[in-house]
Amino acid sequence: MSGKRRLITVWRIINNGVVNFIRNISLAIAAMAIMVVTLTIVLFSLIVNYTFSHTIYQITNKIDVSVYLKNRVTSAETTKLIGEIRNLSNVQSVQYLSKEQALKAYEQQNSNNQQLIQAATETNNPLPPTIIIKPVNLNNLGQIKSFLNEPNIAALQTDPPSYSGQEKEAIDRITHATNVLQEIGVIAVIVFAVVSVLIIFNTIQMAIFNRRDEIQIMRLLGAGRGYIRGPFIVESIIYGILSAVISVIIINAAFQASSGTLQASSLGLLDIGYANNYFDSHFIVLLTVELALGIVIGAVSSMIATRRYLKFKTR
C-alpha cells in the first residue's frame, strides 16, 4: 500500500468509528453509562484515599515528643544531644526552645487562662529548655523512647519526656482508625479498578457481540482485519474518552454541591474541604488517569472482543 492510500485508510477507519458511534448512539449511551459509573467510583475512591492519607499525616504531625532539659545543661551538650536525636531514623524534625521561647509558647497556648500566665512570669520562669521532636512514624515511638531513656541522656532531663500529654491516647485511637481506613482505601481503589476493568470489558464485549453480524459480513466481503476492527476500536476509545470526562464532571459537580450545602466541611473522618482542594489541584492528573483508564480499557477490550469474530475456519 502506498503512503497516500495508507493515510486515506487510516482516515476512513477513524471516520467510520465516529460515524458508527453516532449511528449506534443508543448502544453507546448504554455502554457509556456503565463506564461512567465505574470510572466515577474509581475516581471517588482515589480521592477519598488521598484525603485519608492527608488526614493521617495531619494527625501524625500534631503529635510530638517534648524533652525537658535541666537548667544546668550547657549549650554544647544541647547541640550534641540535638544532633544525636536528628540521627535517629524515626525523627522527622527537631525544634529547640530556650527557657524564654518555652515561656512564650506556653503563654500563647494558654492565652485564655490569665491565672496560669501570671503564675509563670519573666522573673519566675518555671519552664525548662525544651526539645520538641516530631516522629516520622507514630506507631514506632520505641526507638525515640529508648534513646531518651538511656541513663546518660536521662540524666540531662528534669522530667520524663511527654508524648503530647493527655491527647496521646485519643490520637492513638484516631490514628489506628485512620490507618485501618487507609488500608481499606487502598484495597478499595484496587478492587474498584479491577471490577471496573472487568465491567467495562464486558460491556464492550456485549456491544460488539450485538454487531458480530456486521463483522461477519465485512469479513465475507474481503475486508482486512484492521479495516474491520479499526472503527470498533475507535468507537470504544470514544466511549472511554467521553466516559472519563463525564465522570470527572460528575465528581466536580458533587464537590460543588457539597461545599455549597454542607456547613461543616467534614463528613465524619472524610475531610471534604481537603478532598475538594485535592481534586482541584490535581485536576489534570486525575483527568489524565481517568482518560488513560477509559482509553486503554476501551481499546484493549474492543481488540480482544473483535478477535474471535475475525477468525477463519481452519477445518
Binding site: I8, R12, M218, L221, G222, A223, Y227
Partner: peptide, 10 residues
C-alpha cells in the same frame, strides 16, 4: 465499502 476497504481514492 467494497471500494474503500481496498484503498480506492474518494
Amino acid at each position: 465499502f467494497a471500494l474503500e476497504m481496498v484503498g480506492m481514492g474518494n
